[in-house]
Amino acid sequence: MYRWQKVVEMCKENNRFAQNRLYEGFSGRLFRLCMRYVHRPEEAEEVVMNGFLKFFRGLPDFEYRDDNSLEVWLKRIMVNESLMHLRQQKALPIFTDADETEGLVTVYVPHYSIDTEAIYAAILELPTGYRTIFNLYVVEGYTHDEIAKQLTISIGTSKSQLSKARAMLQQLLKQRGYEQYGTV
């Protein structure tokens, strides 16, 4: 039996203790994930709470396969809730179509050269649009086609925004002294 399987089964029976245990087990990481999108802690807390409400409402339809499937589903809910929050707050910028031929900047970060906190801090400084697309593509693994559909933009705009996000991230990291490790 997987680590969270029994807890999920108990949550399906509306066991409040199990729901609290699941929340406590995942809320920290999911809060951090939401912070990458919404940027303000109080907003991220609200998004996490709304995401968990949606999770618990949809739990009867969830087919538990393993701990990974649970975490993937929770992350997807939180990303969607974050994007919905940004739309409601009108914080998602209006993207304009961009030239699809615009080159992409490759981000190369040797695993030993920059600590995770430095990268995380730099990502948080990106403008909302750049940060959103960077997170969806690089961190969450969405394709440009999926991002375009989710944000109702063109694939070229998604690629362009990612390119600009990477360039800005590279600049931010260089300003912090990470240029000696090669191309970022």
Score class of each variant (00 low, 15 high):
K54V: 13
V38I: 08
L136N: 04
Q161G: 14
A91N: 04
A18S: 00
V184Q: 12
L104P: 10
A148M: 06
N20A: 12
E43N: 14
N68H: 13
E9K: 07
A118H: 11
T132P: 00
Y181G: 10
E42V: 13
Y130S: 07
H144M: 12
R3Y: 15
L30G: 00
F56T: 01
A91P: 09
E100K: 14
V38K: 03
A44E: 06
V105Y: 10
S113Q: 08
E42D: 10
I153H: 04
T157P: 02
D67W: 03
G129E: 00
W4D: 05
V107M: 15
D61K: 14
T132E: 01
A18V: 02
G141C: 04
M84K: 14
T96Y: 14
S69E: 06
L151F: 04
F52S: 03
T101C: 15
R87H: 03
G103T: 13
E179I: 12
Y137M: 05
P93Y: 03
M1K: 09
Y137D: 12
K149G: 10
E45A: 10
A44K: 03
R32H: 07
A118V: 02
T128V: 01
T96G: 09
K174S: 12
F95Q: 03
R131S: 03
T96S: 14
E146M: 08
K12N: 09
R166E: 07
Q89I: 05
E100V: 11
Y120W: 14
V184L: 13
E9Y: 00
E42P: 07
Q19T: 01
G28C: 11
T128F: 03
S113L: 04
E125H: 12
E45L: 01
Q180F: 05
A121W: 10
V72P: 08
F31T: 03
K54F: 10
I94L: 11
V138H: 11
Q88M: 09
Y2A: 11
N68R: 13
A44H: 00
E102S: 15
G177W: 06
V72N: 11
Y137W: 08
S154P: 13
D67K: 09
H111S: 15
K149Q: 08
T116V: 15
M49T: 15
N15W: 01
E102H: 14
F62E: 02
V48I: 00
A44L: 01
A148W: 10
P41F: 03
G58A: 06
I133M: 07
R131P: 02
F17Y: 01
Q171P: 07
W73D: 05
Q170H: 07
P93F: 05
D115S: 09
L162A: 02
